[in-house]
Design a protein around this nucleic acid. Sequence first.
DNA 1: TCTGGGGTCCTAGGACCC
DNA 2: TCTGGGGTCCTAGGACCC
Length: 504
Amino acid sequence: MSGGRLSRVPRSAPSIAHVDLDAFFAAVEQRDKPSLRGKPVIVGGIGPRGVVSTASYEARAFGIASAMPTGQARQRCPHAAYLYPRFGAYRKASQQIMAALAEFTPLIEPLSLDEAFLDLAAGVDPVTSAEQAHEVALRIKARIFEVTGGLTASAGIGSSKLMAKIASDLDKPSGLVVVDAGAEQAVLDPLPVRRLPGVGPATAERLRRAGVTTIADIRRMDDAELVSLLGTSAGRALARLAVADDNRGLSVDRAAKSVSVEDTYDRDVTDPTVLGRRLEELAARVCARLRDAGLSGRTVTTKVRLYDFTTLSRSTTLTDPTDDVRVLAPAARRLLVDVDTSGGVRLLGVAVSGLADWVQDDLFVDAADALAEQERMSRDKLASGGGDPVAAPDAHADAAAGDDTDVTAAAGTGPKDRSFADRFPGRQHPGWNAGQDVWHRALGPGWVWGSGVGRVTVRFETAETGPGPIRTFRSDDEALAPFEPWAEITRSDDRSPEDAAAPA
DNA sequence: TCTGGGGTCCTAGGACCC
DNA sequence: TCTGGGGTCCTAGGACCC
């Protein structure tokens, strides 16, 4: 939803590309260790409960595929090299690849470390024919090979995302397929339904039972039938894809919606003390990642996979977003109390979602300490009748009422009445949803900024106390009444500017 | 040597509000 | 007195993708 939809499709020329590296993780390993070249390489979990992440083409010849248990792979191909993933190396290669792609067009939608859509109509020399598309794709593949030191990619180009994605898969590895405008249906018809994005094992099985195995079969069904078989959303989507009706635009800069960490243990864990400790480790890792990304979130989810593979989740939504392990860990542990773990636990996970639109990073150096200090000072102030701007908004209603409409320009007279850019030079606005600025303004003796989905997340800063505690209100909370224009803004922030501008 | 880890999106029911 | 809807938020689970 966030991230602008761009570049209208479908098109009269194939100008959307899908680029996908071949056996990416395994290829990086073979690149970095020449003795592995030409040999079966399997990257993935190497413990007793591991699964294959990526198999080199040499390993695929032995029938090894992604998601296969590593134990099974070892039986089929005992002499392969089994490697634990080196994500740092893959991330680095990914950055080189994405940078190379950016030389061809500014409109790129990354899908994962090794995969992206490109809009070649928006490039330096816009593609307007299948011949040009083919020529540009050759250059992209060569450039990737060059910047990564020898990795190969497959490319597909078509008039839509669907066709580009389908095409890139038709001739792996190191393939290049252009589906010209008008040829879409002929390409799709004979393919198995499983090739359509969104059709996984469960959907394929349902379709099979209805006698549907190819895309042409789907096309012959009527929409009502598909909807009754697969549900409204999936049914309608499939009906459209089957006739190559796909006008999805590329979206750049998609914001993260959740951050999670999970571990499968080599042996089931039963000891409640150990479970608690594991959960705390997971919470700490999630918090570290949140802080690295400048994020915090309100909804905490604990995931449990039991000895028999049944998987449960329990979640709770906190009043304030957090990236603090002292908040997250106890919350995660409380959720586990509810679950019968006596039979043994094979996996634990902790996730944070409902991410808030504010950044706690080096803007507030050593934020935890600053926060604790601020809380203490707020209490002192409160005790001495000074009041806190959020806890007692009425005390500052005059300041807000005096300047009640311009919420982004922070017009005013006080020394702190400056725009975000003035106040934090060189720093990006922490707001990302729909390109909406985080609102911010001087407020009485303090400074406040933040925003949220249906929530107003604020942080106060005063000259004396520095950054204050984070507080969150529902946007209709009456405590916010004096600041109504802000609450109004945050109610609509889940929509892109285009959506907001479009008639309902 | 049965079944990873990081995500996204959808559904469905209940609470709550207007 | 009966009978509503719509909308949002929250939780749990499932399908899917790489």
